[in-house]
Amino acid sequence: MDIRLFDLDKDFAIIKNWITDERTNMLWCANRIQYPMSKTIFKDFLKEISDKYGDIPYVAVDDADKPAGFYAYSVNEATKEGMLKFVVVDPDKRGKGIAREMLGRVVATALADENVQAVQLNVFSVNEPARKCYQKIGFVEKNVTKEAVNFGDETWDRINMLIKC
């Protein structure tokens, strides 16, 4: 597996197909991106989060350079924390260690950056597989926002997780 910058023209159609329904969209981006997303909407969204937070989108790719995972990452210089956002793995490849390897590389890169003391991410309480994956990497719960979002008749807590470098 390699990590490279996300290429809208090359990667969008593949990643778009991973977000198969409104619930998956909510779990992935908290509905910050309209479902179903279009290339233009996603491009505008990536520009917005880049301009506002410095987020850079990446893909984890297989040997054929086909995306297997996606995430955005930025560093908050004031808090010296990296922030992982919008983590998603190809549904056909889930449970095969892709996320663990992909995020392990992010953490390893953060460890090498003297300006980063920790990396954090958020996950919804109902996304137990992702939460367990993050715990296996070494992320621990920092805090929980109870009843952070509603989806249909469900109410989800948002769990902020942290790994110290």
Rank of each mutant, 00 (worst) to 15 (best):
R131W: 07
V144M: 11
D44E: 15
D153N: 10
K52P: 04
I56T: 15
G95M: 00
F151N: 04
N160I: 00
D11A: 08
K43N: 15
V123Y: 01
N76C: 11
G54A: 07
E22K: 13
N122G: 12
M37E: 10
K142A: 13
T79A: 12
G104S: 08
I33S: 10
K16T: 08
K10M: 06
K93T: 05
R94L: 07
L5S: 11
G69C: 05
E77T: 07
D153E: 10
L84R: 03
V119H: 03
K16V: 08
C165I: 05
S50V: 01
S38P: 09
L111M: 14
P36M: 04
L8A: 06
G138N: 05
E128K: 11
V61I: 11
T155V: 14
I19V: 15
A112W: 02
V106I: 13
I137K: 07
K132A: 12
V75I: 15
A30D: 12
D113C: 07
N31D: 15
F139A: 09
T145N: 12
E141P: 06
G152R: 06
D113S: 14
R105F: 06
A99P: 07
E141G: 10
T40W: 01
M83H: 01
L111R: 15
K47P: 04
D21V: 02
M37W: 07
E141L: 06
N122R: 04
M1C: 08
W156H: 10
L5I: 05
T109K: 15
A118Q: 03
I56C: 12
K93C: 12
L27C: 07
D55H: 12
N143D: 13
I33D: 11
K39M: 12
V107I: 14
N160P: 01
I159S: 08
E154I: 03
V59A: 09
G104H: 05
L121K: 00
N25D: 14
Q120R: 14
K52Q: 13
V119D: 00
D21I: 02
A64D: 13
D51V: 10
K96D: 09
E77C: 04
L5R: 11
V116W: 02
M26N: 04
R94A: 07
E141W: 00
D157Y: 01
V59L: 08
E81D: 08
C29N: 15
A118W: 02
I33L: 14
K80G: 04
V59Y: 05
I3L: 10
N122E: 10
L103H: 03
